[in-house]
Design a protein around this nucleic acid. Structure first.
Length: 419
RNA sequence: GUGGGAUUAGCUCAGUUGGUUAGAGUGCCAGAUUGUGGCUCUGGAGGUCGUGGGUUCGAUUCCCAUAUCCCACCCCA
């Protein structure tokens, strides 16, 4: 029998970490609620078609990284590599266009990509995300970004910089592509195969290339941001103004070109340098053409996804104090069979009153029970023997300073609650 | 898909220039005049040395393959 391990690229989130995860989840949900965003839960898998059309079948994510299989009905199914496509599908399928606009949603999902694993990158990973449908103004972009800024602030994350850019719309991109190709053409023979491949298909992505031999060309290339059409320019200026008005700091980074095909106009990232080379904690942007591309009516949209593993790594490296698991308020030790029964009864009673109480489950000696109580971090311990049961009162020990006080058993819950 | 490093007890790691029963720390369980935790002492459980081949009288140690982990390219959250 070979030993069975977790599949490559997956990991267990153990109780020692779970309090921090729960805290992040709570705080994200709380901030979203204050903004009027509503939670949506979508399927883990969808038709492969949805991702091919929604994410874009020229992307690496769709071409090489999806977990795709045929189900027993012969349908091609894929585990979601991201959340936006599924939310858009749900938006259309459930007629959310008829809801009052804008429709603002958030989600907490796992996503799956078959990639080689490294720091901050897993095959199964977690994302928090938001999507806004039906509003096209830059105030929406700014609100969405402000939600993130507020979340980072509340969870205690500093040193994370916001970078923004605009990658225009089909109109300005067509004109820009001609400029870009004219710039690249003379050097194409010296550039990497990927760039050569992208030259015809999606020249904009060449800007994103990190190959050393391509750098001289990409660094000097004209930036799309400097060649926006009037409408896109107005939108981008509006975003900057709105961010300024909200007091949110940002830097314009002409090099941000998101890797998913659906983005238009506004793109942004929150970046940290503590997460290895996977510094993007959160990335997002506007996708005004996405809904049409999966057969919906023209509907503007914008969203982001936040990598929860990367967020947790960043919190750790910044030394942000995170939540710890709750400790028992009281441990009740039982001496002998009759007292042990009574201890279990009282423990059950206390638990019904909302108190975190523990007692022995392993028929251990008193010493071992005390040791266990100490390890759980219980605030109080109480030893129950035949005398205590007969008298109806027992000594309640405060573990931190070893002080004891006598408490009537029938008033234990009241004492602990009032404390 | 490509490259570098790693894999020995639950965890963190020693170690054997190839040789009988593979160690430490920590954690776990138990005990130190049977009714009180943390400190100390004693004892115990726990490893076919990642897996599969090869070389050898003999492999945890050398060689090959493979899996997984870590890091980087690429890509992205």
């Amino acid at each position: 029998m070979t030993k069975i391990n977790a599949p490559k690229g997956t990991r267990d989130i153990l109780p020692t970490e779970i309090a921090a995860w729960q805290q992040a989840e709570r705080q994200f949900a709380a901030v979203c609620a204050r903004y009027g965003y509503q939670e949506i839960r979508i399927p883990t898998f969808e038709s492969t078609d949805l991702f091919q059309r929604g994410v874009g079948d020229t992307t690496d994510v769709v071409q090489k990284e999806m977990y795709t299989f045929l189900d027993k009905g012969g349908r091609s199914i894929s585990l979601r590599p991201e959340g936006t496509a599924g939310v858009v599908r749900s938006y259309l399928e459930n007629g959310m266009a008829s809801w009052s606009s804008p429709v603002r949603l958030w989600y907490n999902i796992t996503a799956f990509r078959y990639e080689n694993v490294q720091k901050g990158r897993y095959r199964e990973f977690h994302q928090f995300g938001c999507e806004v449908f039906g509003a096209d103004g830059p105030v929406v972009d700014a609100e969405l970004i402000s939600l993130l800024a507020l979340f980072f602030k509340e969870i205690g994350l500093g040193q994370t910089s916001l970078r923004i850019n605009s990658i225009g719309c089909p109109v300005c991109r067509t004109a820009y592509n001609q400029l870009l190709k004219a710039h690249i053409q003379p050097h194409l023979a010296d550039m990497c195969p990927t760039c050569n491949d992208r030259f015809e298909k999606n020249p904009l992505r060449i800007i994103d290339c990190k190959e050393h031999k391509c750098q001289p060309v990409t660094k000097t290339a004209p930036a799309l941001l400097d060649h926006l059409c009037p409408d896109c320019q107005t939108h981008f200026d509006g975003l900057c103004t709105n961010l300024d008005e909200l007091g949110i700091a940002y830097t314009v980074d002409r090099g941000i070109v998101r890797g998913l095909d659906y983005y238009t106009r506004t793109v942004f990232e929150f970046i940290s340098d503590h997460v290895g080379t996977q510094g993007t904690i959160c990335g997002g942007g506007r996708y005004d053409g996405l809904i049409e591309s999966i057969d919906g009516p023209h509907t503007p949209g914008i969203g982001f996804a936040l990598g929860v593993e990367r967020l947790m790594m960043e919190l750790n490296s910044q030394g942000v104090s995170v939540a710890t698991l709750p400790v028992p308020l009281i441990y009740i030790a039982g001496l002998g069979a009759a007292a042990a029964t009574k201890a279990r009864q009282i423990t059950f009673l206390l638990r019904q009153q909302g108190i975190y109480a523990e007692t022995d489950l392993m028929n251990r000696s008193l010493k071992a029970q005390m040791k266990f109580a100490g390890k759980t971090g219980a605030t109080y311990t109480l030893v129950l023997g035949d005398d205590e049961i007969a008298n109806g009162e027992a000594k309640l020990k405060h573990m931190a300073d070893s002080t004891e006080r006598v408490v009537r058993l029938d008033q234990l819950a009241a004492f602990l609650t009032a404390r």
